[in-house]
Nucleic acid binder design. Structure first.
Lengths: 212, 212
DNA sequence: GTCTATATCTCGATAGAC
DNA sequence: GTCTATCGAGATATAGAC
């Protein structure tokens, strides 16, 4: 499996700073984050941040660019062609939920950038698809193929993909709200996540199944 | 229909400030937002902000408290009991999507607070349910009733509700990403939203339907 | 590479004229 | 109620010793 956080060409110190910055930017946002907060999280002093990454903007852009690449690659990682569409879907849901679960800060950073208008998204997504040539359209293609093979009913593949992503991702975004309104999710979040994989596969697969 | 933005007891100037603050907080987050930015958006000077709302924290709490109340009420507004569960679901999806579409900034503010850890969520949600006695559990109850009546198969109602909310809401959160990856959504967002209502009802209703 | 001290600037908040 | 000017805290960033 690929590295969970910082790019591999980084030194140990760079990785530490990178990981700390990711956490703080994800929580506080691009402008809300404080260099002192990042320094504290990395357990170093402020001057070191500027030694390794010129300024706040440079640090943010490095973190964000890598986050975008991770997210683009996540589709490819979670999608493994199985004999049936049902199995492919099941594996994708499990894999994508696990991806988001283990990349919580990266996910929150992506959402932050979207909420802020997504001005940085366009260029970095283009850059990421160029480097890793893993557009999320492979997922769209998978749905299209399943429709053509008659494994699922005719649906707009873009909406179907968006629905899968939404359901696998949003409950992490709204985790505090979910935990307030649903005490079992508060008591044992991991169990709730596993439950959710089952629920989502059942609901989405039946929702896509052909008429009888 | 209820007021779209600020509490009705506000004066014109207070409303202007309130609306501007909502927009900026929704975009930049609680800490990322700048008082100067809010003043600019309201087309007044900074001193006026402090004249009407003591300080940044007070302004934020006023905006956030109102936003929470709107969101709690949104379930009640969108949910009208229809003869069949299918109709109830259809009307809810249409209503809730429209609610989010017309309360975009409020929605983004809720998400921001969740991403930041949701520390203010608990108290304000309790307060809102006390005032307006409209807990989102009415939705859960609707699903439970439909299960008991045999209108849909047995499902965990909490997961089902979370799935409906996710799919109706998340594509607004990720709108910049969606528009980059799917050009038709960029060209005509409103048409895309309408398409999505149809897709969501079809997929979710079939997903919940009883075995034949 | 690491740390202390400090320069520079931005931001929230207030004073006080009108 | 509205505006200009400004204070003081806290933030980014750098200088320079080690």
């Amino acid at each position: 499996m690929a590295d969970l956080s910082a790019p591999s060409e980084y030194s140990d110190t760079e990785r530490t700073i990178f990981d700390a910055a990711l956490q703080v930017f994800a929580r506080e946002g691009r402008n809300g984050a404080r260099m002192q907060g990042i320094a504290d999280a990395a357990d170093i002093n402020k001057a070191m941040l500027h030694y390794y990454f010129r300024d706040k903007r440079t640090l943010y852009e490095n973190v964000f660019a890598y986050t975008v690449r991770q997210f683009m690659a996540s589709f490819d990682i979670s999608l493994t062609e199985a004999p049936t569409f049902a199995e492919t879907l099941r594996v994708f849901i499990d894999g994508y939920v696990d991806f988001v679960r283990t990349h919580d800060a990266a996910m929150r950073l992506m959402v932050q950038e979207n909420l802020a208008g997504g001005t940085l998204l366009g260029e970095h997504m283009r850059e990421a698809t160029k480097t890793d040539r893993t557009p999320p359209s492979i997922l769209v293609n998978t749905i299209e193929d399943a429709v053509e093979a008659g494994e699922i009913r005719p649906v707009d593949p873009h909406h179907a993909v968006l629905t899968v992503i939404s359901t696998c991702l949003y409950f992490f975004v709204a985790r505090p709200t979910v935990q307030i309104l649903h005490p079992p999710a508060e008591r044992d979040w991991d169990a709730f996540v596993e439950e959710r994989k089952d629920h989502l596969f059942d609901l989405i697969y039946r929702g896509l199944a052909p008429r009888d």
